[in-house]
């Protein structure tokens, strides 16, 4: 440590190597991911989000929804993600390539939202989501600042919430979602990553592995195929 320049060089090398190792190396591996073209369906996956959904993601990010909701499903058998109905396959890097800023999240105080629009038996519709945002639940805060209570001029708005009881606005008034609320809901309703990419297929169970390896190729081989498809 007596030699100043060498010391500084060491410090610099430490940061550079870890940055190159984690960021550059994974960029080399994943940076070229392209959408996967499905011949039978005749289109590519993941599909680009509609403009309104992309704007909704900005609202999702700026309100900090990711502090309680994740958007990453772990593989079946690793945790209860599948059993909770959050997704039948694990999330893969390809799912996120069209997202300006993926909201993976790190806390599951609330449910995972990766496949919110593909929930079974029924996915929440726009009105359910708007009501959740306006009314809240005992465990979900209400965000009434995303709505506007305004006097009804002429005919009532088609978008106004149908509220009953003490939540209903005064006579002659209606509660209408703001543009931010609408884009947020459009985003939430676009969350559906259920297309099965080759790399997302679960590895065969250990016992069945031998038989299936002959039939379908080993998991390693299927990864290779994926890579080549990606390069095309």
């Amino acid at each position: 440590m007596k030699n100043g320049p060498v010391f500084f060089l060491g410090l610099f090398a430490a940061v550079t190597i870890s940055w190159a190792g984690i960021v550059l190396a994974s960029h080399a591996q994943l940076g070229g991911l392209v959408p996967y073209f499905d011949d039978t369906e005749g289109k590519s996956f993941p599909e680009r989000p509609a403009g309104i959904a992309a704007r909704g993601q900005l609202v999702y990010a700026d309100l900090g929804c990711a502090s309680c909701h994740t958007q990453q499903v772990r593989r079946p058998g690793f945790g209860s993600d599948q059993a909770r109905g959050w997704g039948d396959r694990q999330s893969v890097a390809r799912d996120y390539i069209h997202q300006a800023r993926p909201q993976l999240g790190g806390s599951r105080l609330g449910p995972d939202l990766t496949n919110l629009a593909g929930r079974k038996p029924s996915a929440p519709d726009a009105e359910d989501l708007l009501k959740l945002l306006y009314v809240g639940t005992p465990v979900h805060p209400r965000y009434q600042f995303l709505f506007e209570t305004r006097p009804i001029v002429g005919e009532a708005s088609a978008q106004a919430l149908r509220l009953i009881g003490n939540l209903a606005p005064a006579a002659g008034f209606e509660v209408a979602p703001s543009e931010r609320a609408q884009t947020l809901v459009a985003y939430l309703r676009s969350l559906n990553n259920t297309y099965e990419y080759p790399e997302a297929r679960p590895a065969p169970a250990p016992i069945a592995a031998k038989g299936e390896a002959v039939a379908h190729g080993t998991p390693a081989a299927s990864h290779q195929e994926t890579k080549q498809e990606g390069k095309k």
Partner: peptide, 30 residues
């Protein structure tokens, strides 16, 4: 010495010329 390096490297790949998709999560973790 290291904080300015960490911060500027992260700024480049996350804010100014963001890398794609989940690579952002990796850079952010780094």
């Amino acid at each position: 010495f290291l904080f300015p390096w960490l911060s500027s490297a992260a700024q480049v790949v996350l804010l100014w010329a963001p890398v794609r998709g989940t690579l952002q999560a990796l850079a952010s973790g780094w």
